[in-house]
């Protein structure tokens, strides 16, 4: 199958890669770009573990074609920490025990990141709605919601 040149920005850096038409963004990020922080969960758009930001919006990398991200700005969990220092949201998940096994955490944090950029002081209902597409099988969600509140300073 012929490949096409894909030019996009990933975590602040311009990249150009030859990609097959059927390559999913999830496989591009993990396999081509080596960014394995984005997790493959249900792999069918139902669990949110692969949530990344495209042009600032939360998107599911497992049901997005890499080639459709031409010219877009993609952000993954790896973009949040700066020089090894966790972001406020990551720190809050750590301190409030918002993460247990950790598998859903990158998706949770990216979905919450999109929320906090749009709405820095979210209510409980805002947080629940923003995370409604992200499944966690460990925490029961309470600690996750507390973590987002903590990151928002509440």
């Amino acid at each position: 199958m012929t490949k096409r040149l894909l030019a996009l920005t990933v975590n602040g850096r311009m990249r150009e890669d030859a990609v097959a038409a059927n390559l999913l963004l999830l496989d591009y990020l993990r396999g081509t770009a080596g960014l394995t922080g984005t997790k493959q969960g249900c792999d069918g758009g139902e669990c949110g573990a692969c949530t990344v930001l495209i042009d600032g919006q939360p998107r599911l990398a497992c049901i997005t074609l890499a080639a459709a991200c031409e010219g877009r700005v993609v952000e993954t969990i790896e973009s949040l920490a700066i020089e090894g220092r966790m972001s406020r949201l990551q720190q809050a998940f750590h301190e409030k025990l918002g993460t247990q096994c950790g598998f859903c955490t990158p998706g949770m944090i990216m979905a919450a990141e999109a929320l906090l950029r749009r709405n820095p002081r979210p209510t409980d209902a805002d947080i629940r709605e923003a995370l409604s597409g992200n499944l966690c099988r460990c925490t029961g969600y309470v600690k996750i919601i507390e973590s987002v509140h903590a990151a928002a300073g509440g």
Binding site: G45, G48, T51, I54, Q57, P58, R59, L60, I63, T64, A111, A114, E129, A130, S132, G133, N134
Partner: peptide, 9 residues
């Protein structure tokens, strides 16, 4: 419809 990750696409 679905979750925020679907709705933004």
């Amino acid at each position: 419809v679905a979750g925020p990750g679907h709705r933004s696409a």
